[in-house]
């Protein structure tokens, strides 16, 4: 259906959009002579007000998706993701143990989060020279209100501790990149 702007021109020469734009002006009591006297504008204004209140109701609508939708989405996401980037763990040959870089990253992000005013963002984990050591590049966001003195050293210390105590490998290199600030 082709629609023409002229369809919405009122007999008085104003169009619907003009009436809409003037709604707040009229509400505020600053109506002009035409607003007050024109029956076409008045009728359109009433319709638009009815629309506005229905829209408020629509915008406040709280129809929620079914409660199992998150579960369904996450199963699809999990099925879609393959474990990539497996890194070796110290183990006795021929029994090999490996860990995914993602698992290491989530432990290390967690460790960095424990420092006040710091939120870990991206965490890239690579194997360095020997099988029992890793290199990490960690990007963090810092609070511009609540960052403690020595916070970066503390991040370094907590991450290094977590690598040793929770993963069981050595940290040969840790680059910390401040990627953002947050307001909290």
């Amino acid at each position: 259906m082709a629609m023409n702007d002229a369809d919405y021109m009122l007999p008085c020469g104003r169009d619907v959009e003009t009436v809409w734009d003037r709604l707040t002006t009229v509400d505020a009591g600053a109506a002009d002579e035409h607003d007050l006297s024109c029956p076409h504008c008045a009728a359109t204004r009433d319709s638009l007000c009815a629309l506005r209140s229905a829209v408020d109701e629509l915008a406040a609508e709280t129809v929620e998706p079914p409660s199992d939708l998150v579960g369904r989405i996450m199963s699809a996401v999990r099925a879609d993701s393959r474990r990539r980037d497996m890194l070796p763990l110290p183990s006795q040959a021929p029994n090999e143990a490996r860990i995914s870089a993602q698992a290491i990253a989530s432990v290390l992000r967690f460790a960095a989060d424990t420092v006040e005013g710091v939120r870990a963002r991206r965490c890239k984990v690579r194997q360095s020279g020997s099988p029992d050591s890793i290199e990490v590049e960690l990007s963090i966001a810092v609070s511009y209100r609540g960052l403690a003195a020595g916070a970066y050293d503390l991040v370094r210390e907590r991450v290094a501790n977590a690598v040793a105590a929770r993963i069981g490998v050595r940290l040969s290199r840790l680059d910390i990149v401040v990627a953002d600030v947050f307001d909290a």
């Binding site: 629609m3 702007d5 369809d7 919405y8 169009d15 619907v16 959009e17 809409w20 009728a43 359109t44 009433d46 319709s47 638009l48 007000c49 009815a50 629309l51 229905a54």
Partner: peptide
Amino acid sequence: ARARAQLAEVMAPWR
């Protein structure tokens, strides 16, 4: 703008 004008017409009975 066109959508709003069309919807406002439907709202006429409630004005």
